[in-house]
Amino acid sequence: MIQVDQVAIVQGNFRLDDVTFDVPEGACYVLMGRSGSGKTTLLEAICGLRPLARGRVFVDDQDVTRMKPAERGIGYVPQDGALFPTMTVRENLGFALRIRKEQVASIAARTSELADLLGIVDLLDRGPDDLSGGEIQRVALGRALAYHPGVLCLDEPFSALDDETREEMHGLMGQVRQATGCTVLFVTHNLRDAETLGDRILKVEGGQVIALDERPPDLVRPAS
């Protein structure tokens, strides 16, 4: 689970103040808001990539406020995927495990497991330059999941995808949630993403985060 407690972020003239919300274990909350409202900034702060002016962040009941991004156990998928261009898909998927000095065989097994889950078995030896937008996001998702994080933070991962690919990715997100049980915080400005994926919608507005009403159960579709 993710708990954000009275967080303030100040960056030049931009300010987010007194942000408090919880994402319960295994839930997928969608963070919406206009461009420049601070959705990405808030997500980056939760991942430890931006300093907090005030407040605390908890991941699975552990206070991670002062922890480095590497210690937080949060899988992060940025907007453009940000795959490592000098590595193949296989190397991208195994990166977090190589950093943790895991055995070659266990890295290979996990890579293969993720490739199966995400439908990218045929792409393993390709470079990121040879992938489509949807394929890039699948690999970015796999790379973030490789070390079994309890929490996933996704920053508008489907914004550059066509409608058909977006629908496919919605289905894939359902499968991923079912397979991993991850708690997910998903930033988007797309209503379709929010309706399909979100158990609840949070809105960033005027420097604060407002929780919209709990979504009716018939719209919660964790798996397709």
Binding site: P69, A70, I74, A82, F95, A96, A146
Partner: peptide, 15 residues
């Protein structure tokens, strides 16, 4: 070089 990739590496466990 996009600093985003470096940030992703930090979240993946890198110093």
């Amino acid at each position: 070089i996009d600093p985003r990739r470096e940030q992703v590496a930090l979240t993946l466990g890198c110093t």
